[in-house]
């Protein structure tokens, strides 16, 4: 009898420990981009452990599907993707080898962050003759901070599906995120209001959501077609456009080299501004909020 009681007393703390550790366990989340990682962290707080596959200074169209990512995905509770075929070159081989049904399309842990996003540039016909076009619409939607709220809601829904006990915690964070992003959007819009309608040139067609939100006007690209490197004839066309319309700014992402943009700027009397497409593009951009703070401050400095 004593032995049974002793055994019970010995096991009780172990059971309690196991129960408490499972209660404290963080959800493992894998996101394709750092922006989704940042938003997930803001909603999930210390209840989630988030890993982003691509870095903030990497071209999200071209990421190598390294086997080490398969290992991360095999243990994930939630997987968050931009969708709209942005990651079509590298997410399918990773998911196919992940051996994890929770995060496959249709699983509770699968999050297509683009759901309910009002999409821009949805083509009415699609041909690869038009370059690297996206048949579902332009996928760079996270560059409008107001779309961040829709992304956050999609992530919130998945966190609640997988971890319903912490619903109120996630809900409070979602509310806080929405309030912050609203307040900051007002602030950022005000800062850029004096420059509304300013014409700019971009390297690649990845700014329509940013452009729409903050009132810039991107009139041409250094790429003749999406994904096709700049050609001499295209660069000449852009130089003439810049001279004719007094365009002073070329915006470029960190993963494009600046040679062609520099050349155009030299010949047209403009300047090249490198702005970030993702969190982590440089040391100053640690959160989703920082992404816009940085980009807007860079643009204002250049436009002044």
């Amino acid at each position: 009898m004593m032995n049974k009681r002793a055994t019970l007393f010995l096991f009780l703390p172990v059971v309690c420990l196991l129960l408490s550790s499972s209660a404290l366990a963080q959800l493992k989340v894998v996101t394709t981009l750092t922006d989704l990682q940042s938003i997930t962290s803001l909603i999930g707080g210390d209840k989630v452990d988030v890993f982003a596959i691509a870095t903030g200074y990497q071209n999200p169209h071209f990421v190598d599907p390294k086997p080490s990512y398969i290992l991360k995905l095999s243990r994930a509770d939630v997987f968050v993707t931009v969708g709209l075929d942005l990651e079509i070159g590298w997410v399918p081989p990773l998911l196919n080898s992940a051996r994890n049904s929770k995060i496959q399309k249709g699983g509770d842990g699968y999050v297509d962050a683009s759901v309910n996003i009002p999409l821009l540039q949805v083509p009415t016909s699609a041909s690869r003759g038009q370059g690297d076009i996206h048949v579902f619409g332009n996928p760079h939607y996270w560059l409008d901070p107001q779309n961040g709220k829709i992304i956050a809601k999609n992530i919130f829904d998945a966190l609640v599906r997988v971890d319903p006990d912490r619903r109120s915690f996630y809900e409070a964070n979602l509310k806080k995120f929405n309030e912050t992003i609203d307040a900051k959007t007002r602030e950022w819009t005000e800062k850029l209001r004096p420059y509304a309608g300013t014409k700019v040139i971009a390297y690649h067609n990845e700014w329509p959501y940013f452009e729409q939100r903050f009132g810039l006007q991107i009139v041409d690209f250094l790429e003749p077609k999406p994904g096709i490197p700049p050609t001499p004839s295209q660069l000449l066309k852009v130089i003439n456009e810049m001279k004719r319309d007094h365009i002073k700014i070329i915006i470029i992402s960190p993963y494009f080299t600046t040679e062609s943009a520099d050349m155009v700027a030299r010949n047209a009397g403009g300047k090249v501004v490198t702005i970030a497409t993702s969190v982590g593009a440089n040391e100053k951009i640690k959160t989703y909020y920082d992404l816009f703070e940085y980009n807007i401050s860079q643009l204002i400095e250049a436009l002044r």
Binding site: P118, L119, V122, D182, T185, R186, T189, Q212
Partner: peptide, 11 residues
């Protein structure tokens, strides 16, 4: 301050 952007009907 947060202008409501007129979205084209979602395709």
């Amino acid at each position: 301050a947060i202008p409501t952007i007129q979205q084209a009907p979602a395709a």
